[in-house]
Design a protein around this nucleic acid. Structure first.
Lengths: 190, 190
DNA sequence: GCCCATGTGTACCAATCGGTACATAGTTTT
DNA sequence: AAAACTATGTACCGATTGGTACACATGGGC
């Protein structure tokens, strides 16, 4: 039996997938152990705070990924349309055309929302802000940029719900493509 | 101690609220008992199939409510805009400006989706179909009506997620108002 | 009065829950 | 090589889980 030495960051992806599939309450330590390949000993060694700390660590990792791959490009890319395009592509890939659930969105719907309220709020607020800034840089007025940013960030969450409900990834991709088109057609029309 | 005789349909609202707040796995029999005021004896008398049957009954009640209050008006109201207006008003009220979660949408995100797949699929499919027909009757082309119906039904789900995440009912109401305006402005523009 | 349907509360069940304690094994450090 | 630290497996804990069994209480029909 080879000894498999792990690090905290190594297990975060499997941990996240487990929470995504089963939710916070549904992800029992047995399921988490099976998903990560780690026993309770290791789990509580890495996360002394138990499930709550595991979930917080996963949220932080997701947050960092989006900050790096989505929010920052939205704020910095020149021209701004490049950042917007990158956002839609990253989103399509990350959520696997709606087959993969948004853990932050799931937490927002459940009663765990209160426990991770700040992380959940910050994630969506910063996404909206980043997109809003990109749209303003692309020529939209401040309040039009805000409205469109809210609609798109919300629309992505709805696309996940709907495509999973209908069991049709095409619904997700279709909705995203339409939102993307609406955003890029913004300049000529407005 | 007065004897309180209940009926199966009487407990469905409280049952639904309990599932909404805690999810399927999170709603323990203890919580369900507290929410309904019923002991296990009564609960298993009304729902011999246990939690699964309770959830199925709640889904059926929700389905019936939407069929009656939303889908049917969408299909029958004359002019069609009246049905669409009724849909937005019923939705705003039912979801309490995003403070109340959509149980069907929640189930779609979790691993319970497979267990109630047909109920979940049918609910959203019929909502989309009803709205699509109303839009066609209002003059939209078949494929434009379908696209808009998908975007609106999905958008409502996203509005719930986002407004709960940001803890701001105004986000829900704002998104719905914008979708409604887009739909009613459809005729003059298109 | 009695009987039987329908509800209801309670005791109980095995299984699982999240979490703790601790001995041990492997790896670094000294 | 000894010591110290990190990682891991296992045994165990009380509490809670969904579910069952059953006694009993209430009601209407006769």
């Amino acid at each position: 039996m080879p000894r498999m030495v792990a690090e905290r960051t190594d297990v975060l992806p499997a941990l996240g997938e487990c929470f995504r599939e089963h939710g916070f309450e549904g992800a029992s330590l047995a399921l988490i152990g099976a998903a990560t390949g780690l026993g309770k000993g290791s789990l509580y060694h890495f996360f002394p705070g138990g499930k709550a700390e595991m979930a917080a660590a996963v949220l932080a990792e997701i947050d960092g990924w989006f900050e790096r791959e989505v929010f920052a490009p939205l704020k910095d890319s020149e021209p701004p349309d490049a950042g917007i395009a990158a956002m839609f592509e990253a989103t399509e890939t990350y959520f696997r055309s709606g087959r993969r659930v948004c853990l932050v969105g799931c937490f927002a719907l459940g009663d765990v929302r209160d426990r991770f309220a700040e992380a959940v709020r910050s994630y969506f607020q910063r996404w909206i802000d980043a997109l809003r800034l990109a749209l303003q840089r692309a020529g939209a007025s401040p309040d039009e940029a805000l409205r469109r940013a809210v609609d798109v960030v919300g629309g992505i969450q709805g696309a996940i719900v709907l495509s999973r409900a209908l069991d049709d990834p095409g619904v997700f991709s279709g909705m995203l493509a339409r939102m993307r088109r609406d955003l890029t057609e913004m300049k000529p029309s407005s």
